[in-house]
Design a protein around this nucleic acid. Structure first.
Lengths: 152, 152
DNA sequence: CAAGATAGTCAAGTAACTTGACGTTATGCG
DNA sequence: CGCATAACGTCAAGTTACTTGACTATCTTG
């Protein structure tokens, strides 16, 4: 993926829905990641965020996680390995299934989760301020509409 | 990045602007890439698309490209190597600077570019139909607003 | 014209995935 | 009940899309 320069919009560059969606998505991610790192969560990355989004605070069975996330179990395992090394999550043997493992947050992980929630709300408030309430609501509804599976 | 399952929205998953932007952006890219491959451009990938977006039809000096795209010159070189192998672009020595090279499209590349433009318009038309003209315009304006560099 | 900047290449390393092969534990059916 | 098969997790190796570092060739400037 080509990284976005944090510059004003270049009129020579392509302009269409896909481009604008990509730019806006990237801008959000960059802002979020920066704020997370600023909050002391240096281990934070985009792919890890994607995975953490699927791990509820109460924990989850690794197999369930694999089933939900939609990437290979090996990829998830590697991501979990990294997060475990960082001390964000831990894995316990599942008492109900000796093959299985339970993924849950450490205190460090829960703190990061809390910071993440706070930062998301802050960014969202910024967006609301910049766009205005009405357009912001329209944006949210439109994005939801586009994310829904297309009828064929 | 965790790959999105092409399924209906799961209410248990996180929901905020960033998430919706990401989903919508991903959906666009998936739709575009699928259409491109269906149009016979099997070499097409997201990172290549990002680079091609910066190469105008009239060609460009490789150094200028590097300056604009915002990733390392080695990364660009590797992407160009791939595209050259695929026969999408070609590199000529710059007659005005013996250090430099000029990147330009082959016929194959120009055909792909034309198909890409057509597909973009088709997707955009689909979005307009699904959202309605008014909301679509609001979406476009909002995305543009969010992509602009934030005042600090 | 020498010093330094610019253009491009080569090599090696990293992050985030992939597929394939494998051992261990659970399940369900004959 | 026993056994085939499926599910759970791990190990190993390969791919893509990048990165940094080191290097040569050419251009520019004081």
């Amino acid at each position: 993926m080509v990284k976005q320069l944090d510059e004003n919009i270049d009129p020579a560059l392509p302009d269409h829905v896909g481009w604008r969606l990509w730019q806006a998505s990237r801008a959000w991610q960059a802002e979020f990641a920066e704020a997370m790192r600023a909050a002391g969560h240096g281990w934070f990355s985009e792919s890890r965020a994607g995975l953490l989004g699927h791990i509820p605070r109460r924990g989850i069975r690794q197999a369930t996680l694999i089933e939900r996330v939609g990437i290979s179990k090996q990829a998830i395992q590697q991501l979990l390995d990294g997060l475990e090394t960082e001390g964000v999550i831990a894995r316990l043997p599942d008492p109900e299934d000796k093959r299985g493992k339970l993924v849950h947050y450490t205190q460090r992980g829960l703190t990061a989760l809390g910071d993440g929630d706070r930062i998301k709300l802050e960014i969202e408030r910024g967006y609301r301020d910049r766009l205005g309430q009405g357009p912001f609501e329209t944006l949210m509804a439109a994005l939801r509409g586009l994310a829904e599976r297309q009828a064929r």
